[in-house]
Amino acid sequence: MLEGPGPREPSESERREVLRTHMPRGRITSLPVRRTDRLVLLDQVARAFEPGVRYTEEEVNAVLRRFTADLVVLRRSLTDEGFMEHDRTRYWRCGGTVDL
């Protein structure tokens, strides 16, 4: 069975609105329920990690503290949605937007 097209990419104004609603002043006030909005927010957080760099859990937590106190939910969301991967000792960014 063929699947239909995936969700469309949000416009820049939609991205700004999601971030303004859920991340005022750079801190997450709520994780969006709508997946497309949640992906916008997680993409913004993922930009805080350098592609190709391996991070310890402590280093990941230090970065995530800039965004929220709920480190476990945010770290899990980043891995579940494919923005980060991990093995027994390290995390690394594997998805998201890269600024050139």
Rank of each mutant, 00 (worst) to 15 (best):
residue 44 Q to H: 12
residue 68 T to A: 08
residue 86 H to L: 13
residue 46 A to T: 07
residue 42 L to W: 00
residue 47 R to M: 14
residue 14 E to C: 00
residue 59 E to C: 05
residue 97 T to L: 13
residue 57 E to H: 11
residue 71 L to W: 01
residue 25 R to S: 15
residue 6 G to S: 15
residue 18 V to F: 02
residue 75 R to Y: 03
residue 23 M to W: 00
residue 16 R to I: 04
residue 49 F to Y: 06
residue 48 A to V: 08
residue 36 T to N: 09
residue 45 V to D: 05
residue 71 L to Y: 00
residue 17 E to I: 04
residue 66 R to W: 01
residue 21 T to V: 06
residue 1 M to T: 12
residue 97 T to G: 08
residue 7 P to V: 07
residue 88 R to A: 13
residue 59 E to R: 15
residue 49 F to H: 10
residue 26 G to W: 03
residue 56 T to M: 11
residue 13 S to Q: 11
residue 91 Y to E: 02
residue 71 L to A: 08
residue 78 L to Q: 11
residue 93 R to Q: 10
residue 79 T to Y: 00
residue 71 L to K: 01
residue 32 P to W: 01
residue 84 M to I: 02
residue 7 P to D: 07
residue 44 Q to G: 07
residue 37 D to G: 06
residue 32 P to R: 02
residue 14 E to N: 01
residue 96 G to F: 05
residue 54 R to M: 05
residue 43 D to G: 15
residue 51 P to I: 09
residue 96 G to Q: 07
residue 69 A to Q: 09
residue 55 Y to N: 10
residue 18 V to Q: 03
residue 55 Y to K: 07
residue 17 E to M: 05
residue 86 H to S: 15
residue 2 L to A: 11
residue 48 A to G: 12
residue 3 E to A: 14
residue 93 R to E: 03
residue 1 M to S: 13
residue 70 D to C: 04
residue 38 R to I: 06
residue 21 T to G: 02
residue 64 L to P: 01
residue 68 T to H: 02
residue 66 R to I: 02
residue 16 R to A: 13
residue 92 W to N: 02
residue 73 V to P: 00
residue 86 H to A: 15
residue 97 T to Y: 11
residue 49 F to Q: 11
residue 85 E to N: 15
residue 18 V to Y: 00
residue 63 V to E: 04
residue 70 D to I: 07
residue 54 R to A: 08
residue 28 I to P: 01
residue 38 R to K: 14
residue 3 E to I: 13
residue 12 E to C: 01
residue 32 P to Y: 03
residue 39 L to A: 02
residue 16 R to P: 01
residue 60 V to H: 06
residue 73 V to W: 02
residue 84 M to P: 02
residue 22 H to M: 06
residue 9 E to T: 14
residue 93 R to H: 10
residue 26 G to L: 09
residue 48 A to H: 12
residue 52 G to N: 09
residue 73 V to S: 14
residue 31 L to K: 06
residue 33 V to M: 03
residue 82 G to Y: 05
residue 79 T to E: 08
residue 8 R to W: 00
residue 14 E to H: 03
residue 2 L to M: 07
residue 19 L to E: 09
residue 19 L to H: 09
residue 27 R to V: 13
residue 15 R to P: 06
residue 68 T to E: 00
residue 40 V to N: 04
residue 88 R to D: 11
residue 85 E to F: 03
residue 71 L to H: 01
